[in-house]
Computed example of a mutant assay.
Amino acid sequence: MEDSRKVVVFESGDEEYGISIEAILSIEKDEKVTPIPHLPSYMLGMINVRGELVPILDFEQILYHRSSEGFEQAKIIVLKTDDLSFAIRVKEAKEIVDIPGDRLKQMGLVAYGKTTYFTAIAQLDDRLITIIDPTILAQSLDGMKQIQSYMKEFKAKQMT
């Protein structure tokens, strides 16, 4: 395990989650989403982030099967993986925390197929922060492979 890990902590439901700052391109205000019909329920559509079209996922929908629509403090966290940039709408982006390596515990639930993107739990005083790997998240959601293929084709067409 590493010495320490810097993560952006955000809220979804009543829980705190963290994603390594290396995977984060930016944190944006909640903005207009262009809906696209027939997408999975967790996919809100597309947003324009500094001239790039990015698919946006509703993290509240992924975890709790309810919409994040209407949260006053909602933020959009733009993530990058080797295959795809995408965004998640979260209830609130809170802070950047430096988590010591000895505070990160591997999760027994990782074996459960629907939560493989939860890679560890950080135990900090009276807080538990579930750490998420955005690459595994993107690979584990139904429909994301097709969206990745579409985005690659879309970018290739823009280049020509």
Score class of each variant (00 low, 15 high):
Pro40Lys: 10
Met43Cys: 14
Met43Ile: 10
Met43Leu: 15
Met43Phe: 09
Leu44Tyr: 02
Leu44Asp: 00
Gly45Asn: 11
Gly45Thr: 12
Gly45Tyr: 04
Met46Glu: 05
Met46Phe: 13
Met46Pro: 02
Ile47Tyr: 02
Ile47Arg: 01
Asn48Gln: 15
Asn48Thr: 13
Val49Tyr: 07
Val49Pro: 01
Val49Met: 07
Val49Asn: 06
Arg50Thr: 14
Glu52Pro: 04
Glu52Arg: 10
Glu52Ser: 10
Leu53His: 04
Leu53Arg: 03
Leu53Ile: 11
Val54Gly: 00
Val54Asn: 01
Val54Leu: 05
Pro55Thr: 08
Pro55Phe: 00
Pro55His: 04
Pro55Glu: 11
Ile56Ser: 02
Ile56Asp: 01
Ile56Cys: 07
Leu57His: 05
Leu57Gly: 00
Leu57Asn: 02
Leu57Arg: 02
Asp58Tyr: 07
Asp58Val: 09
Phe59Ala: 03
Phe59Gln: 03
Glu60Ala: 05
Gln61Met: 15
Gln61Thr: 10
Gln61Asp: 13
Tyr64Glu: 08
Tyr64Thr: 04
His65Val: 06
His65Arg: 13
His65Phe: 10
Arg66Gln: 13
Arg66Met: 11
Arg66Thr: 11
Ser67Cys: 07
Ser67Asp: 07
Ser67Val: 01
Ser67Met: 00
Ser67Leu: 03
Ser67Glu: 08
Ser67Tyr: 00
Ser68Phe: 04
Ser68His: 03
Gly70Tyr: 08
Gly70Thr: 11
Phe71Thr: 09
Glu72Asp: 11
Glu72Ile: 14
Glu72Thr: 13
Glu72Tyr: 13
Gln73Asn: 14
Gln73Thr: 15
Gln73Leu: 13
Ala74Trp: 02
Lys75Ala: 07
Ile76Met: 11
Ile76Asp: 02
Ile76Ser: 04
Ile76Asn: 01
Ile77Glu: 00
Ile77Asp: 01
Ile77Phe: 08
Ile77Cys: 05
Val78Arg: 00
Val78Cys: 09
Val78Asp: 01
Val78Asn: 05
Leu79Thr: 03
Leu79Val: 11
Leu79Arg: 02
Leu79Gly: 05
Leu79Ser: 02
Lys80Asp: 00
Lys80Gly: 06
Thr81Trp: 09
Thr81Arg: 05
Thr81Asp: 12
Thr81Glu: 09
Asp82Asn: 12
Ser85Ala: 12
Ser85Trp: 04
Ser85Met: 12
Phe86Ser: 00
Ala87Met: 08
Ala87Gln: 07
Ala87His: 03
Ala87Pro: 07
Ala87Lys: 04
Ile88Cys: 11
Ile88Ala: 06
Ile88Asn: 02
Ile88Leu: 15
